[in-house]
Design a protein around this nucleic acid. Sequence first.
RNA 1: UCCUCGGUAGCUCAAUCGGCAGAGCAGGUGGCUGUUAACCACCGUGUUGCAGGUUCAAGUCCUGCCCGGGGAGCCA
Length: 431
Amino acid sequence: MRKWIYINKLKEFVGETVEIRGWVYNLRSSGKVRFILLRDGTGFVQTVMFSATKDSPQFKKFDKLSLETSIILWGKVKKEKRSPGGVEIEIEDFDIVQITDNYPIQKKEHSIGFLMPLRHLWIRSKKQFAILRLRDILIWKIREFFKNEGFANVDTPILTPSSCEGTTTLFETEYFEQKAYLSQSGQLYNEANAMALGKVYCFGPTFRAEKSKTRRHLIEFWMVEPEAAYYNYEDMIKVAENFVEYIIQETIKEGREYLDMLERDTTQLEKIKAPFPRIKYTDAFKILKDNGSETPEGEDFGGTDETIISSQFEKPVFVTHFPADIKAFYMQPDPEDSKYTLSFDLLAPEGYGEIIGGSERIHDYDLLLKKIKEEGFSEEDYKWYLDLRKYGSVPHSGFGLGLERTLSWITGIHHIREAIPFPRTLYNLYP
RNA sequence: UCCUCGGUAGCUCAAUCGGCAGAGCAGGUGGCUGUUAACCACCGUGUUGCAGGUUCAAGUCCUGCCCGGGGAGCCA
């Protein structure tokens, strides 16, 4: 009996005859031995056929095959040391579903300018496959952590009537007779959800019309944002470090085979255990000055500054208490010095930069209104947000974690655009 | 938006001082009973991004434009 199974379950079927439905990943031949490397979306397996003569009907059929031809194949599963992966299928027969002619991506190095317009095909390759498999695992681990901690998933709108933090970086669109903007953060709505459900998180795409052109930026990226009522700054920073430990450790445990495909050395990642070191913004500047950075104190760090700071530590490091001037209006002032805020950024090691930004939020009505006016925002636009401080206001805190930056760090890839199936980058909207 | 590098065969790249545009891979044919981006032999391929200019002669020098890579600012 031939049973359709997936390649990632093959090891359970050693000695049995199985059916695999997939695509030709690579072909090799040597006289009277032929190999088909097959992929089926769950993994890769080497399949082999022998013949006494080179004119056998099976070899004739083999010679029609080309890269990415779709085939259904039957054969016996064997343990085989010489096969990549340790398992091999001895082919009994196969049917061709569709012959592929002139598949554009070859088994060799290509430039990024060539691959990006072929992204819809590029994701079939082994490295991209491994990254996207790890993305799936990471997403589940994120949700699992919050479920375990009692946070409810309550999502926030993507189409919003006004800005969260100013309109310059927002995509504007038509909303019947009105203007609407694509959300760049779920945070303000998240705060309303937290007052209704206590501990919540939202997880979805966000959009920033920033003309950023670096390896750490996407125009459309996914962000997970927890928010909890009655949690202060200290409570939330602890959630953040436990969260990062959990998603890193669980993802590298469950995603081992994919990390191996990427040849990712995980010794640094295995050391990521809470608690993480913390330094105040003003102390971070002492490190920067000692290492030759020319960023003036009072401004936000640049990418190289983040790398200087994070390279001092093996673990991710929290930079805390940023000046109010350079941070969002809703951040709670530091009770010891109101020029600073109860805020924290988490910098990933190995130069992967900021993966978390968070804070305690202002819960006092008058102070929040003052900040909104100072920013030049309309009081009318923020009426509903101010209501949260009017009806049973409580201290609350939250943060946002960038999914693709975190995945880039875990996978060790050089550029964030490979951490999402179809990246939206500056000037690249196709495919 | 700014800085910087680039655009030559299907792909990755060469081409010295301005002097016949050529290699590898992919593709085709044949060979090989254990290949690992297999290997060996033989066979092709060009509007040098576009438009002007200088010159006996331009892939190469000059001007403008288009497209892409890398970086900066901003942020997750």
